[in-house]
Design a protein around this nucleic acid. Structure first.
Lengths: 194, 194, 194, 194
DNA sequence: CCGTAAACGAGACGGTACGTCCTGTCTTCTA
DNA sequence: TAGAAGACAGGACGTACCGTCTCGTTTACGG
């Protein structure tokens, strides 16, 4: 019943949000700013997204990256995995998006859960799948603890983004890949923790 | 010249800030709240710390952790390094502190620089020193790229803290240590990047 | 367009302002106080009145006095004129209102202009009209300089209110009326300026 | 005992206060501003004057006007009386001084009393003396109510100063003098209150 | 001539109000 | 009912003064 939601608005609002994110950065990203830039009322925003954070999440999901091939050799799969995590960060506005998401998640437990469910967990799960397959293929030692490898790789990217002034560039990928593979080989026979 | 700042106030304010951080969490940590809880005027806060973030940094530096022993074997040094990064996180209020710092750094470029100079960079440098010494001692291959190892370890901790619901417990340390050592062994002869 | 301002709030805010003026007096009359007493946000105040002074002016205009009859004999008209200027002052809160207005006008040139246009000038003009009519009716000498008579009467009231501890009572009216009429009779033949 | 107050400071502070009053006007006249402009500490101000208002009063009394001759004919005495009230107002900074005094008196009952005792009452008393003498000399009717005449004259000046944009010029004097004399002649035989 | 006590500059201090900004909810009018 | 517009209560921001206080330094005076 009643007037249906204007589907074109979703895009227009997300466009406005993206532009604002690019220009005003992390702290300048306000609901009021998005509304005025999109030429909509605030209610129209809140009708679609219950909070600033959910809008950010939808912004994140807007142009989904193609998932990496899971069926190649481990190195190729991990390369895809890293590409998936890095690619968006090559554009400044997307860096601001992720930074804003990180901020929002700290201030709102509900959003943290959403972000975990819709972004973090799926990504981790994908990484786990890669390692499960590699284990089955005998590419990595049986019983390998993949968790630190994944958290280390994703964490290193976040670390760069949030706390470092060095940009996130494609040059980061091979270094991370090497690090992941080094761990994937499992405990070396020679030098140990001793 | 003029009346010197009351040194007792620094402590009282930091106490209040810490208590507020514990109770109200990341988003409830306001300058107004700290002032009222400390029983001071807001000006007294701003006189000491130009922004919320700088206060957080001083809060961070309040009880410094003892630096790890640099002269033992690599594994021991890295264990100390991880302990240094993890120990504070065992207390909930300190988790909130670091979360708040992460948030503040995103919203204020100046603070990000300060945090980089006073927290992030020193910590990284300490890690680098460990690896330099290990390299000199022949514990790790010459020319080892230590950066991803350090960023991976620190990043993994931040990742847990900021995006995960799983707590940061002492149990995390051995897993991270194993991961660091796996990378430290350098390029294994067998399976390579292909 | 948009949601219209709640007309009931205007009254509620003015009520609160009036009460505050009565209790806290001239210096205790703050925007914050009015807002909290009215149960509104400060913005709601500033949306309606750009400054404390404009609020005071609206408070002044709230219950307008009936204008004096202009068509009777001079003495009756002047009596009405004085009544118009005095009546409000019989209530303490209104005294505080006028005192506050006087203060605000000194601190804000813009408000001074508003007060001149909306209160002072109309009142003077009304007095001038009385004398113009009296002149036409032959009740006062032609070419009488009415200005000092009006300014003297109004000024004497303000003087009492602002600088004297003696209250402004109805007893003041006949004395002021006599003074105005004495001047209205024009230059006496006998004793002159010499 | 102890170090005596530096007498030169009184003058320096009053100079600074005067300059600030001229430049910053009524609302910009703060104790902090005076202190910084005079190059003194705030305590030095408060040691001499318990409040902003008392400082203003001393500023008022700095260059006392010579009192009018009381022994001439009524018109001359009243001319002197008016001159005494008007003269200071010919200089802009003194206008600001009086405006500030008026403001301060509304906000601080204690100051109002001081101002009444040291400025208002003496001035009124001087006017009353003039009329008492004139009554004794037979220049005015016996039992003349001088109060409204004095309050009207002084009030008219304050009125101009506080609420009008028209400047207080020497041209005001003869008009006020005429008004005072008109009332001084007492009840005219011809037209009455009716 | 030397101690003492107050004056002095400087500025910290608790407090109060300022005027602005943003939040998320609400209410109106116009499709 | 959606949508643009914008009012609304609430809360924090960072700033400005208030009048009091505490420093270190300076300067008279009284023993």
């Amino acid at each position: 019943m009643g007037r249906p939601r204007d589907p074109a608005l979703d895009g227009a609002i997300l466009d406005a949000a993206q532009a604002l994110l690019e220009e005003a950065g992390c702290s300048g990203f306000t609901m009021e700013g998005v509304a005025s830039r999109a030429g909509t009322g605030k209610q129209t925003l809140y009708r679609r997204w219950p909070s600033r954070g959910e809008l950010l999440i939808d912004l994140y999901y807007r142009d989904p990256m193609p998932p990496p091939p899971l069926d190649g050799p481990l190195a190729a799969a991990l390369d895809g995995f890293l590409e998936l995590n890095l690619q968006r960060l090559y554009h400044p506005w997307h860096q601001n998006l992720l930074r804003s998401l990180a901020v929002a998640a700290q201030e709102d437990a509900a959003l943290k859960a959403v972000m975990l469910a819709r972004i973090t967990r799926p990504r981790l799960e994908l990484g786990r799948a890669i390692f499960r397959r590699a284990e089955a293929a005998g590419e990595v030692p049986a019983g390998l603890d993949a968790e630190p490898i994944l958290e280390g790789a994703i964490g290193a990217i976040w670390f760069r983004l949030l706390f470092t002034e060095e940009p996130v560039t494609p040059a980061l990928k091979p270094r991370l890949l090497r690090a992941m593979l080094a761990q994937a080989r499992g405990p070396a026979p020679g030098k140990g923790t001793g």
